[in-house]
Design a protein around this nucleic acid. Structure first.
Lengths: 205, 205
DNA sequence: TTAAAATTGTGAAAACTTACACGAATAAGT
DNA sequence: ACTTATTCGTGTAAGTTTTCACAATTTTAA
């Protein structure tokens, strides 16, 4: 037992979580089934059941899943029962958009800090935050035990910022820089480059 | 022959393309090998060779790949030899960031239109563009034969905008709305929800 | 000229992921 | 009370993807 759970399974859990919350909060549903959830997400019901079975038995034959209970279980599994403080590095247009985006709230994250190197931007207010000097990055991140960061700097600075973040304890990084980043094992990295996504789709046009 | 090429292979081609361009433009390299490319991307050399072998024989034993030639081949495969006009729907902070981002240039895309429904925003200039009334969406998209769009509207409007885009011929959609969208077959969709990405990583913390 | 090193493309094996299909449990309907 | 519907969890089969390993070719070096 205690088998390693495939990354691909972990990757689907947040999708299930998001749809389950939509199902209760927007549509007032109390229960759902693997079939209903799968139909809404374009995923087979068998896959949803198999994925969840890695973690326990959350459903009931004949009835399906009690949404509130399943949501709580998924939150536990994904460690979303507390809110993670997130540092954003880069206060350009993208950093600005991230600072103003309220979609992090109630989903496990709070953008707590934003950094930039431009003296024009340092001290400026962005939503609830004040842009910090990136020279304070190490100090702030280590003092506040920040584990999660978002990189919104140009490609030319992304690897250096990554190295600095990792050195002071950051272990989950979402990067918007259009470049592959090297991180030590034990550090998770995820990329978002809109061009890569568009290029994949133009193949099928 | 003429076997269907796996989606997962198509998905890696843009990554290879991006790194190859970096290799020539930033580092002045003329040739590379599957081993070098793989090492830089954290992908096995065998996988790179196997992926490329779906489309032809682009390398030379003993030497590896001529980067310029391989880049041109990948651009052909991904249909990036022309520039695709892209419509952005939603001129909030995110639409603003997309309009000002110059990373689309030389990579096969040009943000050509941006739409919003807010009268305060319509007519405003964003980088080179003027925000258009979303009521003109169908007219503009069909008249300009736009095939690629980016959705940057709230979740509550994303499905409606998607439907309208698809109706007038859009076939590749990148959505930043935190919601699963339903599209007819033949339409490609790709999602970018930072929270989903962060939630996947917190599992490992 | 010959030997050693580098590198490709690929068939086959291994590993991984998804889909099928069914027993068991529950709920709904007659 | 009995029958029919639903739905879960899961062992197994099928399908997909990655890795291995090697013949063939080219380059480099002695």
């Amino acid at each position: 037992m205690t088998r390693e759970i495939p990354d691909i399974v972990i990757g689907r859990l947040p999708i299930y979580l998001r749809e389950l919350i939509r199902l209760t909060e927007d549509e007032g549903k109390i229960n759902t089934s693997s079939h209903e959830l799968g139909k809404r997400l374009g995923i087979s019901s068998a896959q949803i059941r198999k994925d969840l079975s890695h973690f326990g038995e959350f459903g009931k034959q004949g009835t399906g899943y009690h949404i509130h209970y399943l949501v709580e279980q998924l939150r536990e599994i994904l460690q979303l029962t507390k809110e993670w403080d997130v540092a954003v590095v880069g206060a350009g247009y993208l950093g600005h958009a991230l600072a103003h985006y309220h979609g992090f709230e109630h989903r496990g994250f709070r953008i707590s800090w934003i950094f930039d190197s431009d003296p024009e931007k340092i001290g400026q207010q962005m939503d609830q935050l004040i842009v910090q000097d990136v020279s304070q990055l190490e100090k702030v991140v280590s003092e506040n035990h920040i584990k999660v960061a978002i990189i919104a700097v140009p490609a030319s600075h992304a690897q250096e910022i990554t190295n600095r973040l990792v050195t002071v304890g950051v272990r989950s990084i979402l990067s918007y820089a259009p470049i592959h980043l090297t991180v030590p094992s034990g550090v998770e990295i995820s990329y978002s480059d809109p061009v890569i996504q568009l290029q994949r789709m133009t193949y099928y046009l």
